[in-house]
């Protein structure tokens, strides 16, 4: 951990709100990304990320400085998002709804934006096939390079449970990818076969 972060953490532990705001500034992207990948909606992700920082602020005294702050923070975010998923148990969004909604625009290039949106949608569709805990395990593993032990600690699971969840999730994602690819290929074939006037 870099020096300013250590200082912000120490000051935050003493109740310095400004120091904690610096931590919010520093970790807003990873926390938001995790919430977005978990919930699949920009507005819900914003609320979840805000709630994560509020919970972290409220319980900062419980943070163990020997451990990584990012791990602690992402663990709070993952738990919150898992709870939200359990509460809502909403049906998966229709693809048309997904297309209407745009992600926060970071690229001025329209082509790049379009391809990024497509990529994000594909990713979201894939992740939606997993249950909340499996999804969080996959996100922590592949977006944040958490080890199985770190995921186990973050999600309060045993290392063997994480291992089997990750394994099952990889299989499910690959199967979904194959199904999507087959569907897309079928669509293309239909378009090619349709008579041109």
């Amino acid at each position: 951990m870099s020096n300013p972060e250590t200082e912000w953490l120490q000051r935050s532990l003493q109740g310095d709100e400004e120091a904690f705001a610096s931590l919010v500034e520093r970790y807003q992207n990873p926390v938001f990304n995790l919430c977005y990948r978990m919930l699949g909606d920009e507005f819900e992700a914003e609320d979840a990320a805000q709630e994560t920082f509020w919970r972290a602020y409220q319980h900062i005294q419980r943070y163990d400085p020997q451990r990584s702050f990012a791990t602690w923070l992402l663990s709070i975010a993952a738990h919150y998002c898992i709870d939200q998923q359990r509460k809502r148990r909403a049906p998966i969004l229709a693809i048309d709804d997904l297309l209407e909604e745009t992600l926060p625009d970071q690229a001025p290039d329209p082509e790049r934006t379009a391809s990024q949106t497509e990529e994000q949608l594909a990713m979201r569709k894939l992740l939606e096939t997993l249950n909340a805990q499996d999804r969080s395990a996959i996100i922590l593993r592949y977006w944040y390079d958490f080890s199985e032990e770190e995921i186990a600690r973050a999600l309060n699971l045993s290392a063997s449970a994480v291992k089997s969840r990750l394994f099952r999730s990889r299989q499910a994602l690959a199967r979904q990818f194959m199904a999507d690819a087959a569907r897309a290929a079928g669509k293309e074939r239909k378009q090619d076969e349709s008579p041109a006037f």
């Binding site: 919010v24 500034e25 807003q28 805000q50 992600l103 926060p104 990024q116 994000q120």
Partner: peptide, 15 residues
Amino acid sequence: TEAARPQPGFSNRWQ
């Protein structure tokens, strides 16, 4: 896949 980012002003909204 690029990480999603919040709209600008996140920390102000948090405060």
